[in-house]
Amino acid sequence: KKKIKIYIENENGEKKTIEIEVEGDIDEIAKELAKKYNVKIVKIEP
């Protein structure tokens, strides 16, 4: 498992940072999160 930080922006332009532990393809997981929460991924840090 890797701990990563995902910087997101919602439709109101509010920026947030999510810190999660992931296993597998980080890009795939980030895309799923973006779709699920309707946010834009700004940056992903390993």
Rank of each mutant, 00 (worst) to 15 (best):
K43H: 10
I20G: 00
K1G: 08
I26M: 08
N38H: 09
E14W: 08
E28W: 09
T17H: 08
E9P: 00
K35M: 10
E21H: 07
K31C: 09
I29F: 15
G24M: 03
P46S: 14
K5Q: 05
K36W: 08
K2P: 07
K5V: 13
Y7F: 10
K5Y: 08
A30L: 15
E45T: 07
I41Y: 04
D27R: 09
I26D: 03
K40D: 04
K2H: 12
I8W: 14
K43D: 06
I29K: 03
V22W: 12
T17I: 14
E9R: 05
K1C: 10
K2T: 11
L33N: 00
G24A: 04
T17V: 14
K3G: 06
V22Q: 05
E23Q: 09
D27E: 12
T17G: 03
A34V: 09
I6C: 03
V22F: 12
K15D: 05
N38E: 05
A30W: 07
I4P: 00
A30S: 05
P46A: 12
E28M: 11
I8V: 14
V39I: 13
K40S: 10
I18Y: 13
I29Y: 14
D25G: 04
N12F: 14
I6N: 00
E32Q: 11
K35D: 07
E32S: 08
E21D: 08
D27W: 12
E19L: 11
K15P: 08
E45R: 03
I26Y: 10
N12I: 10
Y37M: 12
P46V: 15
V39Y: 13
I6S: 00
I20H: 01
D27K: 10
I6Q: 00
G13W: 02
K40G: 04
K40T: 13
E32H: 10
D25A: 05
K5G: 00
A34H: 04
K3Y: 14
I4D: 00
L33C: 06
E9C: 06
I41C: 05
G13D: 02
K31F: 09
D25N: 11
K3T: 09
E9W: 04
Y7C: 06
K36F: 08
N10W: 14
E9T: 04
K43P: 02
Y7W: 13
N12P: 01
I41N: 01
G24L: 02
I6D: 00
K1L: 11
L33R: 00
N38V: 03
K35G: 07
D25S: 10
V42G: 03
K3M: 13
K1A: 10
V42R: 01
E28K: 11
A30N: 02
K43I: 11
I18Q: 01
K5T: 13
K16G: 14
G24W: 03
I4Y: 15
K5R: 11
K15F: 14
I41R: 00
V42S: 03
E21I: 13
K40L: 10
I44P: 01
D25Q: 04
E19Y: 12
G13Y: 03
I6H: 00
E21K: 03
E32K: 11
E45M: 05
I41G: 01
Y7S: 06
K16M: 15
E45L: 07
K31Q: 11
N12V: 11
K31N: 09
N38S: 05
K15H: 13
E32M: 12
K5S: 06
K36T: 08
E23Y: 13
E19W: 09
D25W: 06
G24R: 03
K5L: 13
T17S: 07
G24Y: 03
G24C: 06
E32I: 10
E45P: 02
V39W: 15
G13V: 00
N12L: 13
I6T: 00
I44L: 04
L33D: 00
K3C: 09
I44F: 07
K43S: 12
E11Y: 11
E32A: 12
G13K: 03
I8H: 01
E14G: 06
E11W: 13
K3L: 12
E28N: 07
I26E: 05
E23I: 12
K40N: 05
N38W: 03
K2Y: 15
I44Q: 01
K1Y: 10
T17M: 13
P46H: 14
K40P: 02
E32F: 13
N38C: 05
K40Y: 06
I18W: 15
K5H: 06
N10S: 13
I8L: 13
E28D: 11
K5C: 12
I4W: 15
K2G: 08
K1H: 08
K43G: 12
E9G: 02
I20Q: 02
N10D: 14
I26G: 05
N10C: 13
G24P: 00
P46C: 10
E32Y: 13
K43L: 11
I26Q: 03
I29Q: 05
A34S: 10
A34Y: 05
K35A: 09
V22R: 03
V42K: 05
V22A: 12
K3A: 08
I29N: 02
I8Q: 00
V42F: 05
K36E: 06
Y37C: 05
G24Q: 03
V22H: 07
K1F: 12
V39K: 01
E19V: 10
E23A: 11
N10I: 07
K43V: 09
E32L: 13
K5M: 08
G13E: 03
T17K: 04
K40V: 13
D25E: 07
P46G: 11
G13R: 02
D27C: 15
I26H: 04
E19M: 07
E19A: 04
G24I: 02
E14F: 11
E45Q: 06
P46Q: 14
E32P: 00
T17F: 09
I29T: 06
V22E: 06
K35P: 01
D27A: 09
E11H: 12
K35Q: 13
I4N: 01
D27H: 09
E19H: 08
E32G: 07
K5N: 05
K31T: 10
A34P: 01
E23K: 07
K1T: 08
K2V: 14
Y37W: 15
P46F: 15
E28R: 11
I6W: 03
K15E: 12
I44C: 03
N12M: 12
G13M: 04
I41S: 01
E45S: 04
K36M: 08
Y37Q: 03
V39N: 03
K15N: 09
E14D: 12
I26T: 06
E9S: 05
V22S: 06
K5D: 02
K43M: 11
V22C: 07
K3W: 15
K3N: 07
E28P: 05
K31V: 08
K3S: 09
I6R: 00
V22D: 06
I29A: 13
Y7G: 01
D25H: 05
I4S: 01
K40C: 11
E9Y: 04
K43A: 11
A34I: 08
D27L: 14
G13F: 02
V42H: 05
I4T: 04
I29P: 00
N10T: 15
I18C: 07
K31I: 08
K15C: 05
Y37G: 02
V39D: 03
I20E: 02
K3V: 10
I44E: 02
E45N: 03
I29M: 10
K16Q: 12
E28Q: 14
I20A: 03
V39R: 00
A30T: 07
I26K: 01
I8G: 02
K40W: 06
L33G: 00
E45K: 02
E23N: 09
E11I: 11
K36P: 00
I6A: 02
D27V: 11
K1W: 12
K31H: 09
D25V: 06
A34T: 06
P46M: 15
N10K: 13
K36R: 10
E14L: 08
K40F: 11
K3R: 12
N38R: 05
K16S: 15
K1D: 03
K40Q: 09
I6K: 00
T17W: 14
K2Q: 12
I41H: 01
I29L: 11
I44W: 11
E21M: 11
D27Y: 14
N38G: 13
G13P: 00
K2I: 14
Y37T: 03
I44D: 01
N12T: 09
I8Y: 15
N38A: 08
E45V: 09
G24F: 02
K15T: 15
K16W: 15
I8P: 00
K1I: 13
K2W: 14
E19R: 03
E23L: 09
E23T: 11
Y37H: 08
K35T: 07
N12K: 13
I26W: 14
A30M: 15
I29V: 10
I26F: 09
E9V: 13
I44T: 02
D25R: 04
N12R: 13
E11F: 10
A30C: 14
I44H: 02
I41M: 02
E21Y: 13
V39G: 15
K40R: 08
I20Y: 05
N10M: 15
E19I: 13
K1Q: 09
G24D: 04
Y7N: 02
P46Y: 15
E11R: 08
K16V: 10
K36S: 05
K35C: 04
K16A: 14
E19C: 07
E14A: 07
A34M: 12
K43C: 07
I4H: 08
K43N: 06
E11K: 12
I41W: 05
N38T: 04
G13H: 04
E28H: 10
A30F: 11
K35R: 14
I20F: 08
K31D: 10
K1V: 11
I18F: 11
K36C: 09
G13A: 03
I44K: 02
K43Y: 12
P46D: 14
E14M: 10
G13S: 03
K15W: 08
Y7A: 03
I18M: 09
K35I: 12
E21V: 10
L33K: 00
Y7K: 02
L33W: 14
K1S: 11
E19Q: 08
V42D: 06
